[in-house]
Simulated scan of single mutants.
Amino acid sequence: MPGSTIRRIEGAAALPAELRGAAVAIGNFDGVHRGHQAVLGAAADIAHAEGRPLVCLTFEPHPRTVFRPAHPVPRLAPAPMKARLLGALGFDAVVEQPFDLEFASHPPEHFVAETLARDLGAGHVVVGFDFRFGARRQGDTAFLQERATALGIGVTLTGAFADEGGNIVSSSRIREDLMNGDAAGAAALLGYRWTFEGAIAHGAKLGRTLGYPTANMALGEDGLLAHGIYAVRLRRADGTLHDGVASYGRRPTFDNGAALFETFLFDFSGDLYGEAASVSLFAYLRGEERFDGVEALVRQMDRDSEEARALLTGAAPLSALDARICFP
């Protein structure tokens, strides 16, 4: 991903001296959607105006997963992908604060005095209007403003961010769109085409026998994305981009096995096995189907490929971030 160089730091106490005094955006930022970008953009503006480093403080794993381990949050952007997105937004570093029940038990004054002031040496912090922190979520934005200001840390609060229909943008809405096969709806809320990363692995090579060899990737969250056919763009580790059509699902015509994301790249020949790659979803074309035979399946795959080619040829960036992620 061009322009995405960023330092990943495990824990606030490990922040290097040259990044102290930063403008710090604080939050989980799962998905780095348009609402998150309002917070992140405010921090970037402050860093630029005041000549400060630009740092994001986030928490790993997702706090909701820590509190409810039997119901982990399906991640829109696991830590490596989140870091790449933050790098594309111009952040110098992301502090991935280890989050466990012991950290969650600290009182809110501990978070301000130790994490923000002592460990990060924050010059200015930016949070959303509904930011809560500390044991039993006792700390709120008023508490943060009072305690941080007393320690010489500037505080900026951002308001709720609504979409063009007046509805608040949230990670849960994006997850719902993806689960319903609404790739365009998810992209509208994210401000970029949803992108995931993974290693390309060997599969059963069924596609090769059909004239459609595929790059196979396992999606970490099987319940996050609707099974079906997608128009996609794949970025290799060397930065090159390749358009394609992908199938995500259990291959009901063949083995109905474990869910797999299989991408056929247009006008490409080569060995991708073992490479790390990212895939961006441009459109959901249709649901997963079971065909009576191989010939019927191949005819439909031909139609899917034509539709995907046409759609990708006419695609334009949704934003500057989308241009950095999904375009040359």
Results as ranks from 00 to 15, higher is better:
44 A>I: 00
21 G>H: 07
245 V>A: 08
189 L>A: 14
49 A>R: 15
61 P>T: 12
72 P>D: 10
107 P>V: 11
79 A>M: 13
78 P>E: 13
183 A>H: 05
53 P>S: 03
107 P>C: 04
186 A>K: 06
290 R>Y: 06
26 I>F: 02
175 R>E: 04
125 V>C: 01
325 I>R: 08
266 F>R: 04
38 A>I: 00
273 Y>D: 06
181 G>F: 09
114 E>C: 10
165 G>R: 14
326 C>S: 15
325 I>L: 15
251 R>M: 13
280 S>L: 06
79 A>S: 14
311 L>E: 02
124 H>F: 07
225 L>C: 07
183 A>K: 05
253 T>C: 00
21 G>D: 03
25 A>N: 11
322 D>L: 09
76 L>R: 02
93 A>C: 10
274 G>P: 10
15 L>F: 04
97 Q>S: 05
14 A>D: 08
14 A>L: 08
298 V>G: 01
63 P>N: 13
15 L>Y: 08
132 R>H: 15
161 F>L: 06
280 S>N: 04
305 S>M: 02
124 H>G: 00
67 F>T: 03
65 T>L: 09
224 L>A: 07
183 A>I: 08
56 C>Q: 05
177 D>Q: 08
76 L>P: 02
150 A>F: 03
229 I>P: 02
238 D>Y: 05
269 S>D: 15
109 E>M: 09
129 F>Y: 15
